[in-house]
Design a protein around this nucleic acid. Structure first.
Lengths: 341, 341
DNA sequence: ATGAAAGCGCTAACAT
DNA sequence: ATGTTAGCGCTTTCAT
């Protein structure tokens, strides 16, 4: 039997070794009380045979796997990895392990992934959609396990979710530029049809409007949420006769491209151009000067999602569906020049 | 029953719906042939009831979970996330999903983690040890599933592993400095007792020796593999009367600290100081000027590890234990001044 | 091609 | 406190 080759010692072996009933072993392994003598017997046998209980078989009876499925974007991005890191830590603290899938492109496959996860026996799921992903989350029809989504958008999903308000962050950072005396404020937009992109633009437009500053069409350049977009965006802006005094780059990847272009063109920050960016990762403090940016509370987001999921998995459905909104915060560093002085 | 609340449709339900035997359904689901009429019946029922087979129960019979356990360091680091990303993609392509644990501190808990993973029913395991982690991998005694480790060290583990040669990379990058006319070459060392640290230092010392350049003790400054170490290291070097013309920073976190210190002190790269670093992530190209660095082939490492594990899980033990060594490569950019010109 | 039945490792009544 | 037994969802002989 293949079986015997792979799987190690079972509860049966321990029972045989100790001359006790299987159920006694089971009881003890689950924290029940047995006679001291038997406890010692069991301990000895467990050690000798190197037995540890099989959660998978356990699940068959209890319908608990203590495993949660996580579906996320490319791990190798600071956004996803920050969230994933927090999720894993948090869930492990609560005795859960995580199985995860990442998807590269679109969301079409989520349904398939979700089904696969359930096939694999998870007690619940966490889904985090990177803001620059197109498409819609699709769930199998009669989903029986709790799912909490972590996202930057709003309105995409029904059900439990935690999210950040992109509009708010974009508004604040634009306002910051305005308060520093800027009115020629360019923006490098995210990909068309992206919800986060339009949320962020909304924040920008609203701030401009609130302060009565007209938006010049040539200052709104179309990006795509990737490196390239930021790079080309800056080049485009720098061809203008009347150059902006500030630029708001609306996501992380684009901000790297933008910085590259800024170096290439020899533009001095903040003397010639003030720069603010959406998302705050390592780069923001490693470039010179350090960037003023909008920071999404990723760890807090992940934490809240885990808490909620944990409650759901424990059967508490009281406040379903719950939508938790968190506010991003602006981090003021050295990349903005104060034009008032 | 809790049970019924959570778990969805079972094979039983499909059998009832179609008036066929459970075993017929099972056969069909596993690619066996059934009468056309029955096939249609089953398909219809599966769709109607939204049935998908439960891998976990399946495992009970087949001892295959199609799940592999991954134990890695902090996900939220470019090193780990690059590897994890590749592993997940690769394994998913082969029909496996990944369960993972990360550990923050030391390796003492690996044994526990490994046991837990096995309890959870994985077909194999991948363990990646970040080079800056102390301690020894400890495995449970009669481990019945294949394990492949991915590491930067050599000699720590018996069994299958893939690794990079740190010594080689450190040698090459030091040699590069020498060939560019440098002889006052400082190095910021990794943490004491770290194997990778000593491997990297070995590369440095060997290159210096091969080219007959004496190593000045004050140019070897002790770091700790974290940000702080790089930061303080540069400050320490810059207090010296005879400053080095080049510095080799031996890991990523320290190189960030070093760059920070370099900015703070207003040191110009490469005019005043040439900088080379071990590890090549985003930072290296985002700073100005771009950094010459040693790049570990992380994706390739992960790929090779997956290939090997996949073979082992398919029962091919032919070349056990296999040790695959990969060479890092140097990426020459703009942070080194050519003193020969 | 189909079905009946045994059994994977474990837990949970229930009886002792 | 311990043992007996049924059964979780599924695959796999072995009959039919």
């Amino acid at each position: 039997m293949k079986k015997k080759d792979r799987s190690g010692t079972t509860i049966k072996d321990v029972a045989r070794e100790t001359n006790l009933a299987i159920s006694t072993i089971s009881k003890y392994m689950n924290g029940g009380t047995v006679r001291k003598k038997n406890q010692e017997l069991i301990e000895a046998a467990v050690k000798k045979l190197n037995y540890f209980p099989n959660n998978t078989a356990r699940w068959l009876r209890t319908s608990k796997t203590y495993r949660v499925g996580v579906i996320a974007g490319i791990v190798n991005s600071p956004h996803t990895s920050a969230i994933l890191n927090e999720i894993e830590k948090k869930l492990r603290d609560h005795g859960y392990s995580v199985s995860f899938f990442s998807f590269d492109e679109n969301l079409d496959k989520t349904k398939e992934y979700v089904e696969y996860m359930i096939s694999n026996g998870v007690d619940g799921m966490l889904i985090t959609i990177p803001g620059n992903t197109e498409g819609q989350l699709i769930f199998p029809e009669n989903l029986r396990i709790p799912v909490v989504t972590i996202e930057e958008n709003s309105g995409v999903i029904q059900g439990d979710c935690v999210q950040t308000s992109c509009t708010q962050g974009a508004y604040e950072i634009t306002e910051h530029l305005i308060k520093n005396g800027h009115s020629s404020i360019a923006v490098i937009e995210g990909r068309r049809n992206s919800l986060t992109a339009s949320e962020r633009m909304k924040g920008y437009f609203r701030a401009m409007e609130d302060y009565g500053i007209p938006v010049r069409p040539e200052y709104v350049v179309q990006g795509d949420y990737i490196y390239q977009g930021g790079y080309l965006g800056i080049h485009e802006l720098w061809k203008l006769n009347e150059k902006p005094t500030a630029v708001f780059v609306t996501n992380y990847d684009m901000s790297m491209g933008a910085m590259e272009a800024i170096y290439d063109l020899g533009i001095r920050i903040p003397e010639q151009l003030s720069v603010v960016v959406f998302d705050d990762f390592e780069l923001s403090v490693m470039v010179n000067p350090k960037l003023t940016s909008v920071r999404q509370p990723l760890a807090e987001l992940a934490d809240a999602a885990c808490e909620l999921l944990l409650r759901r998995m424990n059967g508490d459905e009281s406040d379903y569906p719950k939508r938790i909104r968190m506010m991003p915060s602006c981090i003021y560093r050295e990349s903005v020049q104060d034009l008032n002085r």
